[in-house]
Design a protein around this nucleic acid. Structure first.
Length: 178
DNA sequence: ACCGTGATTGAG
DNA sequence: TCAATCACGGTT
């Protein structure tokens, strides 16, 4: 009984919808030692096109953000503040720059700590999120309910309109009511 | 609150 | 070339 792997069809949709529906599914990574880590996604953010002033593509295509203009389901990993690798998956139609940021799982809170725990870095940038590349997503049957939305983190520079957009999505385990 | 850290970016 | 900026996290 194979778990369903989320593929291009899943990510090739409006990024807000992908960000919301990715919650509750498993992020899977093969470590250097061959061991597989699986964690439940519980926080995401949507970055939606050149019009979105918080999106890396807001200034048009550059060497760094070029991958966002490509095929859905491809990994976008970039170094933030010189220290932290941030994991994104390209979403939407080819040619339209959008991506969902993986901000956290039930096991690890924070986008920088997440990649550190997973042991991933820029080597995965521009690779497709499939098992043979060592990073993929598996659909989980467990219900994901009570999804919350709110402003994205650390994007005040984008101006009030885009900074306040409810493009951040998260939910809590039933056990932890807090 | 403030700072480490270095790639990225646009300007000169 | 150069300096400002930055989708963070740890410490004060």
């Amino acid at each position: 009984m194979d778990n369903t792997v989320l593929g291009k069809d899943f990510f090739n949709r409006p990024v807000q919808r992908v960000a919301r529906e990715l919650l509750g599914n498993d992020l899977c990574v093969v470590q250097e030692n061959g061991r597989i880590i699986k964690m439940t996604v519980n926080e995401t953010e949507a970055y939606d096109g050149e019009k979105d002033l918080a999106c890396h593509a807001s200034m048009g295509k550059t060497p760094r953000n070029e991958v966002m203009y490509g095929e859905a389901g491809v990994i976008y990993l970039y170094l933030c503040y010189g220290m932290h690798w941030l994991l994104n998956i390209v979403c939407g139609d080819n040619g339209y720059p959008a991506a969902v940021l993986l901000r956290g799982t039930h096991e690890v809170k924070g986008p920088g700590r997440l990649t550190k725990r997973l042991g991933i870095d820029g080597r995965l940038n521009r690779k497709t999120a499939i098992r043979s590349n060592g990073l993929w997503f598996e659909q989980k049957k467990s219900a994901c309910f009570d999804i919350k939305t709110g402003p994205r983190v650390g994007v005040t520079y984008a101006g009030e309109y885009w900074a306040k957009k409810p493009y951040r999505f998260w939910f809590s385990k039933p056990e932890s009511s807090a």
